Amino acid sequence: MLTDTLIEDPRWDTADLPALAERAARETLAHLSLDPEAHEIAILACDDARIAVLNAEFRGKPAPTNVLSWPAEELASETPGGQPDLPDPGPFGEDPLELGDIAISFDTCTREAAEAGKPMADHVTHLVVHGILHLLGYDHVRDADATLMERLEVEILGKMGLADPYT
Rank of each mutant, 00 (worst) to 15 (best):
residue 67 V to Y: 03
residue 120 M to H: 09
residue 121 A to N: 07
residue 43 I to T: 11
residue 48 D to F: 06
residue 39 H to G: 01
residue 85 D to R: 00
residue 33 S to F: 02
residue 105 S to K: 15
residue 61 K to I: 05
residue 131 G to F: 12
residue 34 L to D: 01
residue 77 S to H: 04
residue 140 H to S: 11
residue 43 I to H: 08
residue 66 N to Y: 05
residue 92 F to V: 00
residue 99 L to V: 12
residue 45 A to I: 08
residue 64 P to C: 13
residue 94 E to N: 12
residue 127 L to T: 06
residue 133 L to H: 05
residue 89 P to E: 00
residue 29 L to E: 00
residue 120 M to R: 11
residue 89 P to I: 03
residue 28 T to V: 08
residue 66 N to A: 12
residue 107 D to R: 09
residue 98 E to H: 02
residue 91 P to Y: 00
residue 62 P to E: 09
residue 18 P to K: 12
residue 36 P to R: 02
residue 63 A to P: 01
residue 81 G to D: 05
residue 107 D to F: 05
residue 111 R to S: 09
residue 45 A to F: 02
residue 49 A to M: 03
residue 51 I to Q: 11
residue 93 G to V: 03
residue 105 S to Q: 13
residue 22 E to A: 12
residue 130 H to Q: 13
residue 137 G to K: 04
residue 38 A to E: 00
residue 65 T to D: 13
residue 115 E to K: 10
residue 101 D to K: 10
residue 67 V to S: 11
residue 85 D to P: 00
residue 93 G to S: 10
residue 133 L to T: 06
residue 117 G to N: 11
residue 140 H to N: 15
residue 47 D to V: 10
residue 12 W to F: 05
residue 114 A to L: 15
residue 131 G to R: 11
residue 12 W to G: 14
residue 22 E to L: 11
residue 86 L to R: 00
residue 112 E to V: 13
residue 88 D to M: 04
residue 31 H to C: 08
residue 97 L to V: 03
residue 112 E to Q: 14
residue 48 D to I: 03
residue 74 E to D: 07
residue 95 D to H: 08
residue 68 L to A: 10
residue 128 V to M: 10
residue 78 E to H: 13
residue 118 K to H: 04
residue 36 P to E: 15
